[in-house]
C-alpha cells in the first residue's frame, strides 16, 4: 500500500509532533492601550468596516474587507500620514480555508508607527491594485502574482517578475514542492538543448549525500586525500600542493617554498 501523502501541503514536516502540545499565542493587546493607534483605528472605522484590530509586537493589525483596500490605503496615506508601503504579500491558507491572507505593511515616519492591514480573498479571486497610490506596489504585486498566482486588478504590467515569463506553477504555494516539479527540473535542459537531450544529460542530483565513484576519500583532510577504495592506514604520504610541474616550466623560474617569505603581521 502506498503511504498517504498530503497533496495540499507538500512542504517538509517535522518528523515528530507532540499530540498534546498546544501552541501558545503571541500576546495581543487592546488597541485602546496606545493613543496613536486608537486614533488611527477610529479614523479607519469611521469610513470602512473593520472586522478585527489588535496590537501584536508593537504593531497594530487591522482586518478589513477585500474590496476596501484602495480606500483604506488612500485614507491612511492622505489623512493619517502613513506615507510608505513597506511590504505587501500573501500567505497561503488554501489547505485550511481555501483562501489567501493578504497583508500590507504600512509605515508612518512622522508618528513612528507601523500598521499591518490584512484581509482574506478566496482562492482564484483577484485583489485591487494599489499601484496608483504607492509605486512600490507595482513590483510587490507582480511578485505576489509570480509566487502565488494572485492577480491584481488594474495593474499596468501584470507579468512574472522573479521567475521567467514561460515558467509554469507558482512556487510559494504550499502545493508546490521545494525542489520543484518536473517542469522545473528539466527547465534549463529543455530550453537550451531540447527535450531529446534529457537522456544524455540525465536527471538532477539533488541528494546531498551522493558520492561519485571518482571522488577521493578523506577530501576534508587537505594534502592527505587518497583515491576512493584505498585502504586507509593513517600514515599516507602527504600530497604536496604543487604549483608547477616537477621538471620545471619553460621560461619560468621554479618557485622555491623555502625562499618564500611569510608575512605574520596582518596589519603590515
Amino acid at each position: 500500500m502506498r503511504t498517504y501523502t498530503n497533496k495540499k501541503n507538500v512542504q517538509a514536516k517535522p518528523y515528530y509532533t507532540d499530540r498534546f502540545w498546544k501552541a501558545p499565542q503571541v500576546a495581543k493587546y487592546e488597541v485602546e492601550s496606545d493613543e496613536v493607534f486608537a486614533a488611527d483605528l477610529a479614523a479607519i472605522k469611521a469610513k470602512f468596516p473593520v472586522s478585527d484590530a489588535f496590537i501584536q509586537v508593537e504593531q497594530m493589525t487591522v482586518w478589513i474587507n477585500a474590496s476596501d483596500i484602495y480606500g483604506v490605503l488612500e485614507l491612511m496615506r492622505d489623512e493619517l500620514a502613513y506615507t510608505q508601503l513597506s511590504e505587501m504579500s500573501a500567505i497561503d491558507f488554501i489547505e485550511q480555508r481555501d483562501e489567501f491572507e493578504i497583508f500590507y505593511q504600512m509605515l508612518s515616519m512622522t508618528k513612528r508607527k507601523r500598521i499591518r492591514i490584512k484581509y482574506t480573498i478566496k482562492n482564484g479571486q483577484a485583489v485591487d491594485s494599489v499601484e496608483k497610490l504607492f509605486r512600490s506596489a507595482d513590483w510587490s504585486e507582480r511578485e505576489m502574482f509570480d509566487m502565488f498566482g494572485i492577480e491584481a486588478n488594474a495593474h499596468p504590467f501584470m507579468k512574472r517578475i522573479l521567475m521567467p515569463y514561460d515558467w509554469q506553477g507558482y512556487p510559494l504555494l504550499k502545493t508546490y514542492p521545494l525542489q520543484g516539479d518536473e517542469f522545473a527540473a528539466w527547465y534549463e535542459v529543455d530550453k537550451i538543448y531540447g527535450k531529446e537531450a534529457r537522456e544524455e544529460i540525465g536527471p538532477e542530483i539533488r541528494d546531498t549525500s551522493t558520492i561519485d565513484r571518482y571522488d577521493s576519500e578523506r577530501f576534508a583532510k587537505l594534502g592527505h586525500e587518497v583515491p576512493k577504495g584505498t585502504e586507509i592506514t593513517g600514515d599516507e604520504p602527504k600530497n604536496e600542493q604543487n604549483y608547477q610541474e616537477e621538471g620545471g616550466v619553460f621560461l619560468i623560474k621554479k618557485f622555491d617554498k623555502d625562499s618564500s617569505k611569510v608575512i605574520d603581521d596582518p596589519q603590515r
Binding site: 502540545w21 501552541a23 503571541v26 513597506s86 507601523r114 499591518r116
Partner: peptide, 10 residues
C-alpha cells in the same frame, strides 16, 4: 516552536 502569531521587524 515559537508561539502562534505574526511579527514584522525592520
Amino acid at each position: 516552536r515559537p508561539p502562534v502569531g505574526e511579527v514584522y521587524v525592520a
